[in-house]
Write a protein that binds this DNA or RNA. Sequence first.
DNA 1: AGGTGACATGTCTGGCTTGACATGTCAATC
DNA 2: GATTGACATGTCAAGCCAGACATGTCACCT
Lengths: 171, 171
Amino acid sequence: MSLRIALLGLLSSSGPASGYDLTKKFEVSINHVWQAGHSQIYPELAKLAADGLVTVEAEGARGRKTYAVTPEGRAEVHRWMLEHVPAEPARSENALQAFLLPLLDAPEAVAVLERMSAVSRARLGHLYELKVANPPASGRLGVHALELGIMQTESFLTWAATTIDALRHDA
Amino acid sequence: MSLRIALLGLLSSSGPASGYDLTKKFEVSINHVWQAGHSQIYPELAKLAADGLVTVEAEGARGRKTYAVTPEGRAEVHRWMLEHVPAEPARSENALQAFLLPLLDAPEAVAVLERMSAVSRARLGHLYELKVANPPASGRLGVHALELGIMQTESFLTWAATTIDALRHDA
DNA sequence: AGGTGACATGTCTGGCTTGACATGTCAATC
DNA sequence: GATTGACATGTCAAGCCAGACATGTCACCT
């Protein structure tokens, strides 16, 4: 369901695009919020076309098909945004490791936390790059999600640092 | 993979338990970190037993089977904790709605953010209850994950409030 | 003329997950 | 004696998803 919405949203905002374009857009923008590879995107676009939420606007070179969102497609995203209450997925390997941390002794736990922190700092750097590359003009799809991602990553780092301190203090 | 680890972790920490017990434990403790229903747990326990990571320690009334973790099982969790680098799932309906927020007009976006906030406040309340119910004795499985969940939810609320302000200011 | 790499679209297998279906026991209440 | 509700274990169908496999075009460089 959510993949449909993500695709319709991208098409609504950026205009007609091919499956290939959308796959690229996923990689550089929506990726930190929702991941999908081309093997998911192509079939989903076909379904979307079958349901009348997008149309094949043009077929170009190398078999390229350009999809455009229909008014029904726009309505679908709009409806989903207003009506759908997101289900908390609560399925994160990071959080699972956090949960199981007490199974380790203190030095091991600190090592795990430091590894997590390194990964998060890299992620944070990546998000900052996105922010700089995509100056936060309001109205741009993704600006708010980017801020959210940055804040969440920062708060994760704070948690990790606090927990490391606590573990060192215990030992 | 992660479900195996979650089950082995719970069995390592709390001692032998049945599939039913583990299902209940999932609901009240690990749920905010990793969800699974009994229809996943029972087959996974059977596989775990087949792989020698747990054993059926006893069969009690009403077909109850009590599983205990084996040394191999403990080693498996330990190895996973130290070696496995969590893949960021980055698949959150909440974040997707945040991403698509610019498709809405300002009052609609504010309404969506306020709904999100209400859900998050409820979640935060639930986490606080867990914290009070389970006093944070260090060494208890889940204490760190609980703190993490609280911090992340609080930072989500901060983001939502900031974004609402920004949208109101624009309009 | 041949090779490389970006463009472009698909399929398929296997694993994970959900929700519904199915079955049966035991203890306590009415 | 019958009903209810917690206990307890499973299966099944359908959808979602990742990663591998498969195919072919076009432009550019050598």
